[in-house]
């Protein structure tokens, strides 16, 4: 008997709706259990407030990329180019500010980084919604183009950026505030606006959404534009976090972004999940990484652990979907 069979039988006594709600919010009990495990094995993570603050500070850019990926996933699409957009936006703007010296105003710098990310995201959306490009291939192409584009722009770190440009991202309170405000803002938009509900509708069934009058093309373009915007915001915060912009900035963030979103309860196929759950996924990933760092774990193996976490996320997702299918089937046939 498979694990999901056993779990389903255990769930049979619980009202179906409760089971579904539990499945959708699985991240919070998982986060609680992992926190207790870390508290028992590496208590310094929780007793050292500095470590916790640094954890949240470092998690801010990743969190914004997770938000970007989650928005795409909710719409039934996905974006492999989130890290490349974050990195390219940051590198391009750094070149404008410190190498080409086209602009020195830090506010204009922030506007440029956000505009670049949004424009790339919008292009992704237009290619997918209007030209019918497959989201996987389209965003893979942009991953390669803009990942390579960073190196084409510079092969060495860029420093001497305007203080006003890097200072906000270098301030832990500002960075964490931007992360939390972004999630809160998007959570409200997705819950309380027609646009947010349209994204869920497109993610659940694009054809059905179109049939009931949703302008699916516009919705998809808006989704990718928003995603690009938050990637760029992540690129800007990363710039502030390190103080310089290296050519490998934001590399490999896409895998962690997927892992956090999936663990956070965002459906791989769209239409289901809550953005605050994805924030829980970010906290989980950051907590595990902090615990490994504090416990003296070999840093070269951190990527391996990230891969294991991604695998765990996919296994968890499959189990969750299997249970959900059984609960729904039981409900329909009863």
């Amino acid at each position: 008997m498979s694990t999901s069979n056993i779990v389903t039988r255990q769930f049979e006594r619980i009202p179906e709706r409760t089971v579904l709600v539990l499945l959708e919010n699985m991240i919070w009990p998982i986060l609680a259990v992992i926190s207790l495990l870390i508290l028992a094995t590496v208590p310094r993570v929780f007793t050292n407030t500095m470590a916790l603050r640094l954890m949240l500070f470092a998690a801010a850019p990743l969190g914004l990329v997770v938000l970007a990926e989650s928005i795409c996933l909710l719409s039934g699409h996905f974006d492999l180019s989130v890290g490349a957009i974050a990195g390219f936006s940051a590198v391009f703007t750094a070149m404008v500010l410190a190498e080409w010296n086209l602009v020195s105003n830090p506010v204009l710098g922030v506007a440029i980084v956000l505009a670049v990310g949004s424009a790339i995201g919008a292009t992704n959306g237009i290619m997918i919604a209007k030209l019918g490009m497959n989201p996987f291939l389209q965003t893979l192409a942009f991953l390669i183009i803009f990942g390579g584009g960073k190196l084409a722009l510079t092969t060495r770190p860029i420093s001497d950026l305007p203080e006003g440009y890097v200072a906000p991202g270098g301030n832990e309170y500002v960075a964490i505030g931007i992360l939390l405000a972004s999630f809160a803002c998007m959570a409200v938009v997705f819950r309380y606006t027609a646009f947010g509900q349209a994204v869920y509708a497109v993610g659940s069934d694009e054809e059905a959404a179109r049939a009931v009058g949703i302008r699916t093309d516009r919705t998809i373009i808006a989704v990718y534009t928003l995603s690009g915007f938050f990637c760029a915001l992540a690129g800007w915060l990363l710039t502030g976090y390190t103080g310089i912009v290296s050519p490998d900035i934001a590399d490999d963030m896409v895998f962690s972004a997927f892992a956090a979103a999936i663990i956070g309860g965002i459906s791989l196929f769209g239409g289901r999940g809550k953005l605050l759950g994805a924030l829980g996924g970010v906290l989980l990933l950051s907590l595990v990484e902090t615990a490994l760092n504090v416990s003296g774990f070999d840093p070269t193996l951190i990527e391996v652990v990230n891969g294991v976490v991604l695998l765990f996320a996919i296994l968890l997702y499959n189990t969750k979907e299997s249970i959900r299918e059984r609960v729904l089937s039981a409900g329909v046939s009863s």
């Binding site: 819950r191 309380y192 869920y200 659940s204 069934d205 059905a208 959404a209 009931v212």
Partner: peptide
């Protein structure tokens, strides 16, 4: 039928036509 399976019944019924509260651009579902 053009139904969205992942969404609840009420959301399907009012998709694209939600009752709103608030004023103008500040109105919400």
């Amino acid at each position: 039928l053009a139904l969205m399976d992942d969404l609840d019944v009420a959301t399907n019924i009012f998709m694209g036509n939600f009752p709103r509260k608030g004023v103008g651009p500040f109105s919400v579902v």
